[in-house]
Amino acid sequence: MHAQIVLFDGFDPLDVIAPYEVLHAGAVAAGGALTVALVSAEGPREVVSGTGGLALRATAALDPSRPGLVVVPGAAGRVGDPEDEPTDDSIPVLLGRTLTTDLPGLLKAAMDEPAVTVASVCGGSLVLAMAGLLEGRHATTHHLGLDLLDATGVRAVHARVVDDGDFVSGAGVTSGLDLALYLLERELGPRIAHAVEELFAYERRGTVWRDAGPQPAGAW
């Protein structure tokens, strides 16, 4: 199995590094059953994050037909108040710029590929939603972006990790740890995920939400 973690200009480093480290450790624990790479829509290049000019290198172009996982991060930038005018370094602007690249088309191809599971961390689900790829799907994102998910026709869920079949999403920035550990459990088994939890001295938080089981009664 191969995991491709997407980089785009203005990405949030923790959205990338947390899943990368977890998945890489899982690959070691699984004896090489998983490989992990940083990719971009444009191919190999230095990609500058939205945090202090920190750059990471994409080593390949995103291949939407390659079986495995595609992980989409969010952006790092100025949050501000909702009534503020957007600035070039604001998160909505950084996320919106991805729509002017080849990334939406590549992500659509990945979503259409039965052998690929697409996952997102934080604002990564907003990238997919703004590209029109999540209408009617269940997803989560940072709590400040849940209304925007709703506005794009997504069935927003206030949960740490949401499993919607071939699309799995994580909420706030640090949820990349929980998302990646869950993906390890789902794809390689609980023993591998538990070994990585022990290595990093971190236990997954919250219940993974799925559209299954009875609805809670009353005011829940």
Rank of each mutant, 00 (worst) to 15 (best):
V161W: 08
S125M: 03
S120W: 04
G218L: 01
A55K: 11
G218I: 00
L149A: 06
I5W: 11
I192F: 00
S90A: 13
I17H: 06
K108L: 13
C122G: 02
G123K: 03
S120C: 03
K108Q: 15
R205G: 02
P216K: 00
A115M: 12
V162R: 01
V127T: 14
L177W: 12
G105P: 07
W209P: 03
L134D: 10
A219R: 10
T87I: 10
Y182C: 01
G80M: 05
F200N: 06
A61M: 08
A41M: 08
G153M: 11
G153T: 11
A37F: 05
A29Y: 07
L56P: 12
D84W: 01
Q4D: 06
L181Q: 04
V116W: 07
D147M: 04
D112R: 12
P104A: 08
G189F: 00
P67V: 05
T174R: 12
V72G: 14
G32V: 08
T117G: 07
A27N: 09
G43I: 14
D166F: 03
H138I: 01
T100Y: 13
T117L: 13
L188T: 01
G96R: 14
L56T: 10
A201M: 15
M111V: 09
R66V: 14
V196M: 10
H158Y: 02
I192V: 15
D112I: 07
L103Q: 09
C122H: 08
L106I: 10
E21F: 05
V162H: 01
L95N: 08
V168R: 06
A219I: 06
A76H: 04
L133M: 11
P44M: 05
V157D: 01
P82W: 06
I91P: 12
V118S: 05
A115Q: 14
H138D: 01
L7F: 09
L69K: 03
T51Y: 14
V16T: 08
A61Q: 14
E198P: 00
S49L: 11
D211Y: 00
E85V: 14
G53L: 06
P13M: 13
E135Q: 15
A115G: 11
D102I: 02
P44I: 11
R66K: 13
K108C: 08
P114T: 07
E203A: 09
L99N: 12
P216A: 02
L134F: 14
E83T: 15
E42T: 12
P86M: 10
R78S: 14
P190W: 00
D112S: 15
S49N: 11
D15I: 10
V28F: 09
V22K: 03
V118A: 10
G10Q: 13
A180S: 15
L133D: 05
S40Q: 09
S40M: 06
V118C: 08
P86N: 05
P92A: 06
L94P: 04
G10V: 04
L7A: 05
P114V: 09
D9V: 04
L7V: 05
